[in-house]
C-alpha cells in the first residue's frame, strides 16, 4: 500500500494532529501490524513471526524497510535506542497495542484486549447493523465473541489446550506428513464423514494413526480434522445469532472451515472478514482513533 506522503512531514509541535493510527497485535505466533489514516482507511498491513525480545520485533514491524511507511522516528528507525530510552515515533503517528504481548511494549499510547480489538476491527470493516458472532481462530487460541453493532456483549476464549486452534491442525498435519497448504485441497476430496473424538491433540494423533493403519484415506482424515476443529469451537459457547463472521489467520488459510461451520446451523449468514488476520491490529488502531476523538460521538467503527 502507498504511504501517506503528508504523514512524512516532520513536526516539532507536540499538538500536531494524528495522521496515522497504528495497531499492533502481539499474538503468540505472529506480530501483526496495521496502519489507518484518520478517515479509517487502511494504509498498510504487515506481519512477522513472534520472536524475542518481543519489543525488538515490534519495533522492526513498525519501522518498515526502505520507503515503507514507518511509525518510528528517523533517528530510531534502524534500531532500538541503545541507552534504554523508548524509540521516538514520527510526528503525527500513534501506536496502540493488543494481543498477549500488549503489556510489554513501552512506547505505545494505549492498549486493549484482543476481544475488543477483534470486535472493533471486524465492525470497522463490515459495519454490520445486526447482532452477530465473531469466530476467531488463531495459532494458539480460539475466540467466540457475541457482538451488537455497538459493543461486545459476551465472549469465550479457549486457551486450555490446542484443540480447536491452529496448533491442533499443525500437529495433525505433521502426523499425517502433509504440508499445511495441501490440507484444504485434500479435504475437498474426501468421500466419507469421519469423526475424531478426542479433545486432546495427542489422543487425536493416536486416533489418526489407528485409522491410517486400518487403511483410511488421508483425505477423509483431513476432513475429519477440520470437522473436529469446528466441533471444539462450537462447544465453547452457544451461538444464537444469524450472522457469523470469521477472522484470524487459521480461517484465512483454511477457508474450507467456513462451510463446515455453516452446515452446523439451520440458516446462517457467514462472512469471512476482510483482512481476517489483521482484525486485531486494525481494531487496536481504531481504538486509538476512538481514544483521541473528543467529538462526543459514539465510538468510531
Amino acid at each position: 500500500m502507498s504511504t501517506a506522503a503528508d504523514c512524512d512531514r516532520p513536526s516539532t509541535d507536540a499538538t500536531v494532529r494524528t495522521e496515522v493510527f497504528w495497531g499492533v497485535d502481539c499474538g503468540s505466533a505472529e506480530i501483526k501490524v496495521a496502519a489507518l489514516d484518520r478517515e479509517g482507511r487502511l494504509l498498510t498491513t504487515r506481519r512477522c513471526r513472534t520472536l524475542f525480545p518481543l519489543v525488538e520485533h515490534v519495533h522492526r514491524s513498525l519501522a518498515g524497510q526502505g520507503d515503507e511507511l514507518s511509525a518510528i522516528a528517523d533517528g530510531d528507525r534502524d534500531r532500538l535506542p541503545a541507552d534504554g530510552r523508548q524509540p521516538g515515533l514520527r510526528p503525527g503517528h500513534k501506536v496502540f497495542a493488543t494481543g498477549y504481548g500488549r503489556h510489554h511494549i513501552g512506547f505505545v499510547q494505549g492498549q486493549l484486549t484482543e476481544i475488543k480489538a477483534h470486535y472493533l476491527g471486524v465492525q470497522h470493516q463490515l459495519r454490520l447493523q445486526q447482532d452477530y458472532t465473531i469466530i476467531d481462530i488463531g495459532g494458539q487460541d480460539a475466540k467466540v465473541i457475541r457482538a451488537t453493532p455497538s459493543r461486545v456483549e459476551q465472549f469465550a476464549i479457549n486457551r486450555k489446550c490446542a484443540a480447536g486452534t491452529g496448533a491442533y491442525i499443525e500437529e495433525l498435519a505433521h502426523r499425517l506428513e502433509v504440508p499445511m497448504q495441501e490440507l484444504p485441497r485434500l479435504a475437498a476430496a474426501h468421500d466419507k464423514d469421519l469423526t475424531l473424538n478426542s479433545y486432546c491433540t495427542v489422543f487425536s494423533g493416536q486416533e489418526v494413526i489407528k485409522l491410517l493403519m486400518h487403511g483410511e484415506r488421508v483425505e477423509n482424515l483431513i476432513h475429519a480434522l477440520y470437522r473436529s476443529v469446528v466441533k471444539r469451537v462450537l462447544e465453547m459457547t452457544a451461538i444464537d445469532t444469524d450472522t457469523l463472521v470469521f477472522s484470524g489467520g487459521v480461517m484465512s488459510h483454511h477457508p474450507i472451515l467456513v462451510p463446515l461451520f455453516a452446515e452446523r446451523f439451520d440458516e446462517v449468514r457467514t462472512i469471512l472478514a476482510p483482512n481476517a488476520q489483521f482484525c486485531g491490529a486494525l481494531g487496536a488502531a481504531i481504538h486509538g482513533m476512538n481514544e483521541e476523538s473528543d467529538d462526543g460521538l459514539p465510538n468510531h467503527q
Partner: peptide, 26 residues
Amino acid sequence: VDGDLCDLRCFSDEQSTTLIEAFLET
C-alpha cells in the same frame, strides 16, 4: 476463568489477564 486453588499447572497468568480485562471492558 480456569485455574486452581493450589495447582498452578492449571492456571495461566496470560489467560486470566486477558479474560478478566476483556470482561471488565464489556
